[in-house]
Amino acid sequence: MILKPMEQPVLPERTSEKPAIVITVGDPAGIGPEIVSKAIANAEIFKICRPIVIAELGILQREIERNHLGIKIEAVSEITDQMKFLPGTLALIDIGIPDRLPEYGKVNRDCGRAAFEYLRKAVELAEEGRISAITTAPVNKLSIKAAGIPYAGHTEILGALTETIDPLTMFEIAGEMRVFFLSRHLSLIDACRMVKKDRVYNYILRCEAILNQLGIQRLKPIGVAALNPHAGEGGLFGSEEIEEIIPAVELARKKGIDVVGPIGADSIFNMSRKGAFSAIISMYHDQGHIATKTLDFERTVSVTLGMPVLRTSVDHGTAFDIAGKGIADPTNLIEAVKTAARYS
């Protein structure tokens, strides 16, 4: 399925039963296997979903033993309605790669390949209608590159695997703040070049469609962040607001969308925290990431939208510096699973 940029995104149909959610462990040399194992050991997620993990058996066994989690692994070959999902049991689809336990905290092409194959299997299950959503632990971009995979990260890989043009990224903090991103993994200078009227207008339309499809109550407008300090100060600090952002906002308002902006980035996130907006459109990666992660790092969840399957993710990386030490906190992953369940 290929989505053109102006087409409305697709979300899975909602069901009354607990959704089946696949959790991929990301890079096996990072903290992904640890936080996934700890999340499954927490009975809380079994109340809201049916979790299935995609990984390699030995990698998870190592974490369960190291962290004294007291859970057992049940290997499954397929997902069926007859499966029982019980606290204390980790349902595993074993991909079988990498074929040896990797050293913690090291860039490794085999781990990059494994992380890719976990995602490929997750998408396959989604296409077969076996699962409702995907939740991902972090990948390492250098390991992905070392494996010869020509994509920067999760979002780009999933876009390619699902044949989706330009998936939408939304950060959410437990339903309290939602931030969309006009661009993601670009240098700052390239991100600034992406701030064009057509793109901003298109993103306003797409964000409006997503909010409606997610069933989010729309009592407040969408807020559009400015690119330049003080929203350009009437052209003194840059012309993008006058030439690109304001015309896009005005055009969207003529289409009946409740949207305001541009509003200076030093104010808009605080305004959102106080309930001023249904969502914010951030002009580039760090503008929104810094605000949300500073507000609540543990509860900020990344949601990838506009694909045939919904995907949620932690907001942190592989944390190579603490991998294998048993101190990784699974809170963010648990929040990501909760978000996937809420929207499935």
Rank of each mutant, 00 (worst) to 15 (best):
K255Q: 13
A276R: 08
L161P: 07
R178W: 08
G264D: 08
R109N: 09
P28M: 04
V303W: 05
I134P: 10
L236I: 10
M170N: 13
S272Y: 08
E34P: 02
P98D: 07
F181W: 01
G238R: 09
K196T: 10
R178A: 07
A126K: 11
G232H: 06
P330S: 06
P87M: 12
E65I: 15
I93K: 00
F297N: 08
I189V: 13
K84T: 14
N212Q: 12
F181N: 01
K254F: 02
T24N: 09
A122P: 12
E17M: 09
E244A: 09
I189D: 13
R311A: 00
D286K: 03
T339L: 01
A126L: 04
E63C: 10
G261I: 12
D258P: 01
V260Q: 03
H289L: 14
R218Y: 03
K4T: 14
E74M: 09
D286L: 02
I59T: 13
T135A: 15
R206N: 14
L57R: 15
L60G: 11
Y104G: 08
L251E: 15
E335W: 08
T80R: 10
V260W: 00
P51Q: 04
L310T: 13
G238I: 11
P138S: 07
S282C: 02
A122E: 12
A209E: 15
P5A: 08
S344G: 15
S272F: 05
T15Q: 14
A39I: 10
D258F: 05
A126Y: 05
A133P: 05
V303L: 14
R342D: 03
G264V: 06
N108Y: 04
I71D: 06
R311W: 03
K254W: 02
L119C: 05
L92T: 02
P19S: 09
K72G: 13
R50F: 09
T304D: 00
D296Y: 01
